[in-house]
């Protein structure tokens, strides 16, 4: 992709090399531009869109086991991105746990904690400290956060039964009521 630079050399040779060199140079220049364009589109598109299919993923849990698309099927899924080093995450930790306890027995609501760029030791300390019982796991190879194109932590995504993105929350929830209202709306949809 350094081709934009490679082109000069080609263009110098093409005097002798014929039209091929020049054509090649143009192809290289266009290839560079294409890559930049792809990246630019990515940068510009921002977060994932509401009411569109949410990314599918498989979460490997701290306590062993996995939760994949099969377990999420037909449920309202609350995906919370957090980290133990993230101060604002602590503000909503208890509320999330209370909300989970409220819905746990219904069976059609699933809370998932995705631990972003964190160490397992610290993460476990954090989970114990807030008594968090809903499934939590590390964001292996940061692939889940990349799929959701998160901009930071905490960030929460509510996915409807149909698998569409229902709501995006950037920053911490301010109250238990806020979470309950949103999940109820997602359930009612």
């Amino acid at each position: 992709m350094n081709e934009s630079m490679e082109s000069p050399d080609d263009m110098v040779t093409n005097k002798v090399g014929g039209g091929w060199g020049r054509a090649l140079a143009w192809v290289f220049v266009l290839a560079v531009l294409a890559v930049i364009a792809v990246q630019l589109r990515k940068t510009m598109e921002g977060g994932i869109l509401l009411n569109e299919k949410a990314p599918t993923f498989t979460l490997t849990l701290f306590d062993g086991g996995e939760i994949g698309p099969a377990e999420m099927q037909g449920k309202v899924v609350v995906v919370n991105f957090w980290a133990s080093w993230c101060k604002p995450c602590e503000e909503e930790a208890e509320e999330l746990q209370q909300a989970w306890e409220y819905y746990q027995d219904r069976g059609d609501v699933l809370f998932l904690g995705v631990d972003y760029v964190d160490t397992e030791t610290e993460a476990r300390v954090y989970l114990d400290r807030f008594g968090i019982t809903y499934p939590n796991g590390p964001d292996l190879r940061t692939s889940i956060s990349q799929a959701f194109r998160i901009t930071g932590v905490p960030e929460t995504y509510i996915i409807s039964r149909a698998g569409d993105l229902f709501y995006t929350k950037v920053g911490p929830f301010t109250s238990l009521q806020e979470i309950l209202t949103l999940v109820d709306q997602a359930l009612a949809e």
Binding site: M1, N2, M5, V32, V35, I36, V38, Q39, K42
Partner: peptide, 23 residues
């Protein structure tokens, strides 16, 4: 100098390229 430029451009675009090639 152009060789250094090639290295720098390549290093600069490589992360973009790997991400874009995910497509």
């Amino acid at each position: 100098f152009i060789a250094i430029l090639i290295v720098c451009l390549w290093g600069l675009f490589y992360p973009i390229l790997t991400e874009a090639l995910g497509v």
